[in-house]
Nucleic acid binder design. Structure first.
Length: 401
DNA sequence: TCTGGGGTCCTAGGACCC
DNA sequence: TCTGGGGTCCTAGGACCC
């Protein structure tokens, strides 16, 4: 049986939502109709474009451009900071509205989801008219616009929502693939990024049509197992299911770009501590333990590297994560100046699988965990900022004892 | 005042085991 | 008296996504 899949995507999500936030706070202008971007803090070396208005897009400003280059393209550019907690509210409102029509939605990111229309078609009728109705209801109730793409699978639905914007409904049915998708540059295909595009173009594969008709054996030499799925996608074929039950995350990470390059272990320690605390808090919220701890470094040449360790017993406290990350850091840092530091937890488990070692005092361990549970529960109840680290030094002392 | 942060999935090579 | 082979786990890096 043929499926009908929707992909619903908020137009310029962060910028649209910030526009509402500003209007709520008495702004006279709607930044959606101006030369505006949402951008990071340049002084903190986070100066990139997170979202742009359509006017900016016309000037060639792209997401992830440096603000420096964006300003060159548009000297009168206005830059606004991101407001993630407000974005989360808007996102929740959007998914709640969509769920009121069907629980079968798969959330891809803060501003987009798939909806399997196949099962609710009998209730709501023609998919295209329903999509228009849904899009208009979102605009009316939530005051921002979306694009809705409709296809027989996730890939075509996703590609369709990316056609002309904003505030549009597009279909990409099987028979429309040659006309609507084949002429696009190969890099527009979902799953074909910068590196693959460069390689494909070198092989004279420039459009999605070129890729759709490419020889699998030939491409296999360059892309290995990815060659098959790339060709399938180019033909508009995909059989992934819409997965509505949100699956648990596979890992938890937290990283931070430093305001200047760090060159000493003393500078690094409090950062690792605070990263440890953040990931431990996330872990606590998910009631999980981690078997793998990794430390990530981006050096001042932008080279990323990481070092990880698999533990016999899964851990979950700040102290434990901090101790492991200190060890990992010391093992692999080659003293290159550091631009970014991160900690990632992997191989998460429901249980600690903890076996008390012969040489450990179990009571000490228990006390530490119980204290942290109290702290994290307070954070959950009253907000993350309720308990603040007094000074990194002091807390560090506590944890290192 | 140049380049974020949080994810997922895949691959290659080495260790280890039978 | 030249060095098997298959499976699994672990690590590091890379590509891609929003």
């Amino acid at each position: 049986m043929k499926r009908i899949i929707f992909h619903i995507d908020v137009n310029n999500a962060f910028l649209s939502w910030s526009a509402l936030d500003l209007l709520n706070h008495g702004s006279k202008i709607d930044i959606r109709n101006t030369y505006a971007v949402i951008g990071g803090d340049e002084k903190a070396r986070r100066g990139i474009v997170l979202a742009k208005s359509n006017l900016c897009k016309k000037l060639g400003i792209q997401t992830a451009d440096t603000l420096y280059s964006a300003r060159k393209k548009c000297p009168s550019l206005k830059i606004y900071p991101a407001n993630y907690s407000f974005y989360k509210q808007k996102s929740d409102q959007l998914f709640k509205l969509i769920r009121s029509y069907s629980p079968d939605i798969e959330i891809l990111s803060i501003d987009e989801c798939f909806l399997d229309y196949t099962k609710v078609r009998k209730l709501y009728g023609d998919p295209v008219s329903f999509a228009y109705q849904l899009k208009d209801q979102i605009k009316k109730q939530l005051k921002f616009t979306v694009n809705i793409g409709i296809g027989e699978n996730k890939l075509t639905a996703k590609m369709a929502s990316d056609f002309e914007k904003p505030d549009k409904v597009h279909t990409l049915w099987e028979e429309e693939v040659p006309k609507k998708m084949f002429p696009l540059p190969v890099g527009d295909l979902y799953g074909v990024g910068k590196k693959s595009t460069e390689k494909l173009v070198r092989l004279q594969i420039k459009t999605i049509e070129d890729l759709a008709h490419a020889d699998l054996n030939f491409l296999y030499k360059y892309f290995k197992n990815n060659a098959y799925s790339m060709i399938e996608a180019a033909n508009g074929r995909n059989n992934e299911e819409v997965i509505s039950d949100s699956t648990d995350p596979k890992g938890i990470s937290n990283s931070t770009t430093l305001a200047y390059d760090y060159t000493s272990f003393e500078e690094v320690r409090p950062i690792l501590l605070s990263l440890s605390e953040n990931v431990a808090y996330e872990l606590h919220k998910q009631k999980k333990y981690a078997y793998v701890v990794a430390v990530q470094i981006k050096d001042n040449f932008f080279k990323m590297s990481s070092h990880q360790m698999t533990l016999t017993n899964a851990i979950n406290t700040t102290k434990e994560i901090y101790e492991v990350s200190l060890k990992l850091f010391q093992e692999f840092w080659d003293e290159t100046p550091i631009r970014l530091l991160g900690i990632r937890l992997d191989h998460l488990s429901e249980k600690p699988a903890y076996q008390v070692s012969l040489f450990e005092k179990p009571s000490e361990k228990k006390e530490n965990k119980e204290l942290e549970n109290v702290i994290f529960d307070l954070k959950n109840k009253y907000g993350k900022e309720i308990i603040k680290v007094a000074t990194p030094k002091k807390v560090e002392k506590k944890y290192l004892k």
